[in-house]
Design a binder for these strands. Structure first.
Lengths: 207, 207, 207, 207
DNA sequence: CATGAATGAGCATTCATTCAT
DNA sequence: TATGAATGAATGCTCATTCAT
C-alpha cells in the first residue's frame, strides 16, 4: 500500500513471496501448485505477486536459487573453523545425517530441487541447472584439493570426479530418503556412506 | 457372450500404448504431456486409450511398472551365469557404466522414473513407490548375502543398508548424469563408485 | 457429441460459430467481446469453439473473410446479367444505397470490417488486409476496363486509381453512415456520389 | 484555500499527458495501450495521470478532441486569405494530398480518429461523435454556401449533402491510405477526387 | 500534489475425461 | 470396440483503478 517504498521493503516483500512459495511448492510441487494457492499462502493479492515476479516460473526459479544459496552459505559457515579437511568432509556427511535434514520443510526443499532439476534437464536452457551444480562441485573440489595438499587424502584420486561422486551420492540418498521416508534408514545409510567415502579418500595414506 | 477379440490382441494394444507413452512422457514429462500428444504418438484414438486405461495417471503408472520390470529382468538374465558375487556387483556397475545407459531413450526412462518418484513421494498412496524400490533393494540384498556367505564380503557390513546405499548412489549418479549430461563425466564417476563400493565390501577380507 | 462426423457437419459447425461471431462481434466489437459472450451467443461450449478455431483472433479473421466473400459473390451475381458497364457501376451504387445496407446486421458487418481494418493496419502482417482490398479493387478495375473498351468511359482516366477512389468513397460513406446513422442522409449522399462518379467517368465521351 | 499551483501549470501538465497519449495510442491503438504504457511514454506517475484525468477513456477523449480542434484551426488559418471558394475547396484537397498527411504521426492520428469513431458508434453516448462530425460538416457547408452565393458553384446542389460527401470521401481515402500505405497511390487518388469533386460542384456554371 | 504498490475482477486458453454414434 | 466431438472447470496472467504515504 505504500508507494515509493525503500529498496529493503521491496526486498522484504520478495522474500516473503519466496517463503510462501517454498511452503506451497514444497507441499504440492511445481505443477500442482496454482497461483491462487500461492496467493492464499502468501496472503498477498495476485497483482502484488506479479508486481514482483513476472511469472510462476520466475517465482519458482528464485525460490530455488535462494535455497541453494542458503545451503552453500550454511556449509561455508560451518567449515570456517575446522582445521583438517578430513573433518570437513566428515562434517559434510554429518550435516546431511543430522535430523535437520529430515523434517518436513527441508524435505520439501529437497523434493523441489530434485523435481525441478529433472524437469529442467529437458528444458532448452539447461545451463542454468548446470551452473547451480557446478557451485556445489567447486565447493567440494576446493576442500579435497586442500586434503591432497596437506597429505590427508590419496594423491591418486581425481578430485573433480570425487566431488561429483559425493554430490551424486548425497542427492541419491536424499532422493531415496525423501521418497521412502521412514522405511529408509536414512541416518544409517549416510553414516555408511561417510565411512566408505572417507576410507576411499584416505586409502593408502600413511598416518 | 464371448469377447470379440482375443486377450492377446488386447494385451498387444496396451503394450503399444505403453510404448508410445514411454516416448512421449520421456520427451515432455508427465505434466507437459497431454492426452492429445499421446493420441498422436500412439496413432490411436482417444477413446481407444481410455478404453484400455482409465486415466492419464494409470497409463503413466503402468509404463513405469513395465520399465521397472524390464530392468529387473535384464539384470537377472545377466546374473544367472556369474559364479562370484564380487563379479556380480562389479557387473552391476558395468551395466550402468555401459553406453546403453547414456542414449536418449534410456535417459528419458530414467528421468521419468525419478520425476514420478519425487512427485509420487508427495502423494497419498506412497506405498506403491516404496514397493517398487523394495524390489530393487531385495534383488541386491540377496546377492550381497551370498557374498557374505561365500566369504567374499566382510561380515561386519549391514547388507540391507549396503543395498540401499548402492541404489541411492546409482540413482544419484544417474540424476546428475541426466541433468548435466556431457559436462558430467558419467563413465568415470561410475567407475570410481565401483572401486569405492567393492573395496568397502571386501575390506578386511583375507584373500 | 457425434464422433467421426462428416466434413459437412464440421463445416456447418464452423459456419454456426461464425454466424454467432458476426452477431456478437458486430454488437460489441472485437475487444469488448469475450469468449464467454461468444459461448453464450453460439450456444456451444468453449471447448467446442476452440476445437474448430484456435483463438478468438482466428474466429474473427474467418468471420471477416466469410463476410468479404459473401459480398463479392453477391456483387458478381447481380452483375452477370447487365450488358452495359455504366449500368453495372450504377447498380454498384444502388446496391449500397438500398436499404439492405442500413439494417442492423449489415451495419455491424461494416463496422467490423472497418474496425479490424484499422486495427490491422498497425499489425505486422498487414498483407492480409491488403489482399482483401485488392480483391475489391480488381473486381471494379475489370468492369471499368470493359467500359473504356466499349467506349462508355473516357479513355483518359486511370482506371486503377478510379477503382481505388470508388471503394474509398463507398467505405467513407459507410463509415460516416455507420457512425452517424440517422443524422447522416445516407441514401442521398450515395445518390450524389453516384451522379458525381459516373459523370466523371463518362465526361467528354460523345453519346 | 488557494491552489498550490497555477492554472497554467495544470493546463501544461494535461497537454503533456495528451501529447504522450497521442504517440502511444497512435502506435498501439486504444485497447492495446495500457496505462503503464502511457506512464512510460509520459514519464509521469500513474497517480499524476489519474489526478488530471479520471480514466483512460477520458484521456483518449480529450486527446481526440484536441486533435480535431487543431485540424479545424489549421484549416481555418489556411483559408482566411483565399478570396475564391473554388480555391478554398481545392486547397482542402491539396492539404490532404500534401505529404504532411503521410508521415507517421498524422497517420496515427487518423487511425485513432477512425478507430474511436467506429468503436464509439456502438456506444450509448453517440452524440459526442456526431457533434465532432458536425463541426467538420458545418465548416465546409459555410464555404460551399459562399460558393453558391458568389456563383462559382451550381445552385442545384444540396450543399449539406455535398459537405457530407466530401468528408466521407476524404475519410475513405485516408482509411484506405492508412491501411494499405504504399500500395495505395494516395496522392493520385486525392488528386482524382479533387478534379471529380470540383467539376461536380461547378458543372453547368458559365465562366 | 506526486508516487507507485496493491487490488481483484476479468480474460483467453487448456485439457482430462465423457459419451453419442 | 472404436472414434473424436463436446464439455466446462481450472489456470496463468493482465490491467484499470485506488489510496496510503
Amino acid at each position: 500500500m505504500a508507494p515509493k517504498v525503500s529498496e529493503e521493503y521491496k526486498e522484504q516483500k520478495k522474500i516473503e513471496i519466496l517463503q510462501a512459495a517454498a511452503i506451497i511448492f514444497g507441499e504440492k510441487g511445481y505443477y500442482s501448485t496454482t497461483m491462487d494457492d500461492l496467493v492464499k499462502e502468501s496472503k498477498m493479492s495476485k497483482g502484488a505477486i506479479y508486481h514482483y515476479y513476472k511469472s510462476k516460473e520466475e517465482v519458482y526459479e528464485h525460490m530455488l536459487q535462494l535455497q541453494a544459496e542458503q545451503t552453500i552459505q550454511l556449509l561455508e559457515e560451518k567449515f570456517a573453523m575446522l582445521p583438517f579437511t578430513t573433518e570437513k568432509v566428515g562434517m559434510l556427511f554429518d550435516i546431511y545425517a543430522s535430523n535437520k535434514w529430515l523434517n518436513e520443510p527441508k524435505l520439501n526443499s529437497v523434493r523441489n530441487q530434485l523435481e525441478h532439476w529433472i524437469a529442467g534437464s529437458r528444458a532448452v536452457n539447461r545451463e542454468k541447472y548446470e551452473d547451480r551444480s557446478l557451485v556445489f562441485y567447486r565447493f567440494l573440489t576446493k576442500i579435497l584439493q586442500q586434503g591432497q595438499e596437506s597429505g590427508e587424502f590419496s594423491k591418486e584420486i581425481d578430485i573433480s570426479n570425487a566431488a561429483k561422486l559425493f554430490w551424486s551420492m548425497i542427492d541419491g540418498i536424499l532422493l531415496h530418503g525423501t521418497v521412502l521416508e521412514h522405511s529408509f534408514s536414512y541416518v544409517e545409510v549416510v553414516s555408511m556412506a561417510k565411512e566408505m567415502y572417507i576410507t576411499f579418500l584416505t586409502r593408502g595414506v600413511k598416518e
